[in-house]
Design a protein around this nucleic acid. Structure first.
Lengths: 158, 158
DNA sequence: CTCATTTAGCTGAGCTTTCAACAACCATAA
DNA sequence: TTATGGTTGTTGAAAGCTCAGCTAAATGAG
């Protein structure tokens, strides 16, 4: 902040909203993460990687594209894919004839199996924690809010 | 999951909501975290600790209570307070005459200063990312949703 | 009192993430 | 061609978090 004296502090109401939101989203994230880790040994971030790959043609994607889809930095993805590769869930290779910097991650059969094994428990947890807890109206509102936030955040992207 | 065959998968609409929500809350979290870290070298979790202490009588709290207020595990808090103590922002001591297991964390003057220095930039970021982005109706809805989620999540607490 | 159970808090190991730096490659233009 | 600048992906170090395990102290039942 340039000039702290001009800070527009949060009103009590705004503080209430902010803290409630943070608490809820952190708690939800923690629940989802813990369940997946307990049942399949993977953090959610890794699970998301497998999901995105499984939905892509050839079950493969370029690293940068995969990072975008997973809301991840390239560095983070690099480490994560390295770990998944060590588990035998993903394999990496270059691209034939194209950009020689490119690296492509591909879901292996073992990776697909791991995903199939993990999915039911994960979906169940998401359902219990989110969809069973909120009314249809609340879910619509949540979607609207989330989309608004997303576009606002990446328009500001600095 | 007991029986994967009975999994109630997410509908396309539900997937849309879930992914949008996750993307938005992670992006927001990342922004807030990055700003605070860049400007004051602290992760948000540490900042929250300082805030909670600063709002408490005697600027001090028992560890367990502090953990609750910060939505943190006791272990996490222990590590965090150890780090803050090394920075000179917090001091720890036992409690006179009471439960001899108890430990009390207290905000130091240096800690208070750090908080005062960090607050404007942080508040500004929260305002830009959340309160400037959403309409009053959306904010009301978000609060309602967050409260619903919070109570649902800690009722299920298993 | 004695024993078992629970609670408060800490610690170390292992894992994930962040950040800065880097190498390799592509693209563009003079 | 040769600079120049941007992009892709990786790496290593540092930091934070999670988890299991631990000690010490409180609690409660017999």
């Amino acid at each position: 902040m340039e000039n702290p004296a001009e800070t527009r502090w949060l009103t009590p109401r705004e503080q209430q909203i902010w803290r409630s939101y943070m608490a809820a989203s952190l708690a939800l994230q923690a629940r989802i993460d813990r369940q997946l880790k307990a049942e399949s040994g993977m953090p959610v971030a890794y699970y998301e990687i497998l999901v995105m790959l499984s939905e892509s043609p050839g079950r493969s994607l370029r690293m940068t594209r995969l990072a975008e889809l997973c809301n991840s930095s390239r560095s983070r993805l690099s480490h994560a894919v390295a770990a998944l590769e060590k588990l035998g869930y993903v394999s990496r290779c270059g691209i034939a004839g194209g950009d020689r910097r490119a690296a492509v991650a591909q879901l292996t059969d073992a990776g697909y199996d791991a995903l199939v094994r993990a999915a039911p428990g994960h979906v169940n947890e998401v359902r219990e924690c989110l969809f069973d807890a909120l009314s249809p109206e609340q879910l619509d509102a949540l979607h609207d809010i989330s989309e608004t936030l997303r576009t606002a955040l990446d328009q500001q992207r600095r």
